[in-house]
Simulated assay, not measured.
Amino acid sequence: MKDRLYYFDPYIKTFSAKVVKQGQDPTGDHFVVLSETAFYPTGGGQPHDIGKINQHDVINVEEVDGEVRHYTANPIPEDTNEITGEINWQRRFDHMQQHAGQHILSAAFVELYGFETVSFHLGKDYLTIDLDVDDIKEEILVQVESLANQIILENRPIETRWISKEEVTQYPLRKKPTVDENIRLVIIPEFDYNGCGGTHPNSTGEVQAIKILNWERQRKKIRVSFVCGNRVIHQLHQKNLVLTKLSQLLNAPESEMENALSRVLETKKELEKSLEEAQDNIMSHKVQVLIEQPMMFNEQLIIKDVLNDYSLQQLQKMARMVISRAKSANVFLVSKTMNKIQFVFSRGTASNLNMKQLAAELLQVIDGKGGGSESQAQGGGETNLSAEEFLSLTLEKLKG
């Protein structure tokens, strides 16, 4: 573990080291192993560092079989013996803020309510912890967040300490270490004692702030989403932009936006209802016209129509309306949008046509999908046939 420089000083931005090994993994990606490194490999819920090795971009860092592999976008020259490494400090410090913030928030849940953290993930935009509870109240989150930010405001030191397995019982650890040797503790005195190999700042004040964003149930656990440090400022900036735009669109100040949006949604519902009623009236008129113009084909009463840009649901509704008024009819409705045909076939109680079988034959022609019953079937697919040609083909199938 002595090759991990970040264990002892996470503020290292550049370092020198010797090349121990170069190679390729099974996927062909190039990596280099160094005598010592300040790059953090993915682990413990924290993502890897990125940066440069001799001006070659380091795009991934992983620990494989006990060695830290630095994956580079391009292989470094084979005769390279010594390198200069450079950590992407903006990403590193962000991870330090987030990881320390997670320790503080998890400890606050334990301090106030005894809720244990069972997993942790540091994502690109926010973090999550899973709590070993199946329900939580908003006031609990408010109180926990308040305590966490109080610990940050007190600017307590964040210490690291190496201990042996025998010394573990001397500390009130939040959870049992996962290793038996080289145990590294991250300590916030009189608040949190935790085994951890991640990167952290020197004091809680550097975390700046913690803000809980949301929570949800996940497999009988509660998943809490939150951000720390500069991400809090970024979240505030993004949310303020959204609120400003919404305020302009709704022509209402921020304090009145909820009411203004409620009015807009209510108006939308009323308009949708009026539109649906108008569409039903138009459809009812179309149905009446169709019923008055039936045709006899192969000793069957046929009502057919080609419609423009009708959805499958609209075709089904129209077919039901026709059958309710003409119980002895067979209904064939076809609509086409771009190259896609959609159809509904339906029969009245006086007909014995097998609509499911007929639809299956036509779906083969258009390489489509569909289904239904003997009394009503529907489907659609891609075809160069026009809606009129498809309807003619349907009637031809009736002859057989």
Rank of each mutant, 00 (worst) to 15 (best):
M1L: 05
Y6H: 06
F8T: 07
Y11E: 12
I12H: 03
T14P: 14
S16G: 15
S16E: 15
V19N: 14
V20H: 07
Q22A: 01
Q22L: 08
T27Y: 07
G28F: 02
S35F: 09
E36C: 15
T37A: 05
G43R: 00
G44M: 08
G45R: 00
Q46M: 03
Q46N: 12
I59A: 10
V61C: 12
E67G: 14
R69F: 01
H70P: 15
Y71Q: 02
I76V: 14
P77F: 04
N81R: 10
G85N: 11
I87R: 00
D94Q: 03
Q97R: 01
Q98N: 08
A100C: 06
G101F: 08
H103M: 09
F109T: 07
E111C: 07
L112S: 06
G114V: 13
F115D: 06
F115E: 12
G123C: 06
Y126N: 11
Y126L: 04
Y126W: 12
Y126D: 05
L127S: 08
T128V: 08
I129S: 02
D130N: 06
D132W: 12
D135P: 00
E138M: 06
I140Y: 03
V144P: 06
V144R: 06
S146V: 01
A148E: 09
Q150A: 02
Q150I: 01
Q150H: 08
I151R: 06
I152F: 07
I152L: 04
R156E: 11
E159D: 12
W162C: 09
S164C: 06
S164Q: 08
K165M: 13
V168T: 04
V168S: 04
V168R: 00
T169S: 15
T169I: 06
Q170N: 13
P172V: 02
K175N: 09
K176N: 14
P177H: 00
T178A: 03
T178W: 03
N182P: 15
R184E: 06
V186A: 03
Y193S: 03
N194C: 14
G195C: 11
C196F: 02
C196H: 04
T199W: 00
T204Y: 03
T204P: 00
G205Q: 01
I212H: 01
N214F: 13
R223M: 04
S225F: 12
F226P: 00
H234L: 11
T244I: 09
S247D: 07
Q248S: 04
E256T: 05
A260F: 09
V264P: 00
E266V: 03
T267L: 14
E270Q: 10
K273T: 13
S274G: 13
L275A: 11
S284C: 01
V289T: 14
V289P: 15
I291S: 11
P294F: 12
N298I: 07
V306A: 09
S311D: 03
S311I: 02
S311L: 06
L315Q: 05
Q316H: 10
Q316R: 10
V322Q: 10
V322E: 02
K327A: 02
A329M: 12
N330Q: 14
V334T: 07
K336V: 09
T337H: 12
M338P: 00
K340M: 09
R347E: 08
S351C: 15
N352E: 09
L358G: 08
A360P: 10
E361N: 10
L362Y: 12
V365H: 13
D367M: 14
G370Y: 05
G372Y: 05
S375D: 03
N384P: 13
A387R: 13
L398K: 08
